[in-house]
Nucleic acid binder design. Structure first.
Lengths: 159, 159
DNA sequence: GATAAAGGGGATGAACTTATCCGATTTCGG
DNA sequence: CCGAAATCGGATAAGTTCATCCCCTTTATC
């Protein structure tokens, strides 16, 4: 339903939100989110143009979150990649349906509407909370390279 | 959000539902729904394999509805073309998320869920009712070739 | 039967999405 | 000011969806 690219973007945004302002290189993001290194860069560039991340070139650089994780919603992020637009004009270009969609397109539009509502109801912060302590992005590598974990006193962590 | 192919399929199903059991040729369906003739056939074949339409070869043949328009939902039809599946297992294959998705995938899954619910709430019959008398499939041609129209005493028809 | 009308289905091309590659540019640190 | 580390962005390849083309089989009618 979402494009794979949108999925990738969400994973990387979660990884960046978890990093709490510290920059992560595209390489690190790639490994944490299982996105190929080169493609990860492309997606990060799109997120950068949309002002959701900021890039810092050069040594010690990387990508940092450039939005408020408590107000940025899933919908905001998905739409950077997938248009996911409501239907406002007749796809068949019928002039008599200007401002008054037929039953078919009105139904599809309502479906897109509830999808919007649902995706808008989750913020980036919401996605960081996981009762099990494992988030589907940003974990395995933090152990390898020894960055301190934020919630290591987890409840029933399986490793 | 829906693939264009799914849109086409819906338009053709509406046109067939409007025809009330009379067969329509792929050519007629193509013109009524603004789908190219050759591609229309391909989509009708998919709908046929899924048992939503039945084809009759030879002179006087064509495609007929093979499902109940009052119980077949938008969701049923869309899923012939687009899988639109709920998320049941972790897309990253993390075993610790078996039967317990992380917050990200749980959220996306809920979004797909509400989309399902909404699409399931419309039947094929619902899409035939249009207060303005114009449906976004199956109309222009009925005038050309003179098949009797079902609701010709329309309210504010613009031609 | 012959013929014309109709769908069946494989092969192919066009367009878009996804993914990779590589050289250029920026920036930090000695 | 040099070199390593990092992003930038254009070119290209691979894969998928969308669309077209063509030949075949089926079927109703004469």
């Amino acid at each position: 339903m979402l494009s794979t690219t949108a999925e990738y973007a969400l994973r990387m945004m979660i990884a960046l939100a978890e990093a709490e302002g510290r920059p992560l290189t595209s390489e690190q993001l790639s490994r944490r989110t299982d996105v190929s290194p080169d493609y990860a860069v492309k997606i990060l560039q799109q997120l950068g143009r949309a002002k959701f991340v900021r890039a810092q070139r050069g040594r010690g650089g990387g990508f940092r979150l450039a939005c408020d994780a408590s107000t940025t919603t899933l919908l905001d992020l998905v739409r950077v990649i997938d248009p996911l637009d409501r239907i406002t004009k007749c796809p068949l270009g019928r002039v008599e349906h200007e401002g008054h969609l037929c039953a078919l397109h009105a139904s599809i539009d309502r479906a897109i509407g509830v999808l919007h509502d649902e995706l808008r109801s989750y913020t980036l912060n919401d996605l960081l909370k996981d009762e099990r302590g494992t988030i589907c992005a940003a974990d395995s590598e933090t152990i390898q390279i020894g960055i301190e974990r934020r919630h290591n006193g987890s409840i029933s962590g399986s490793n």
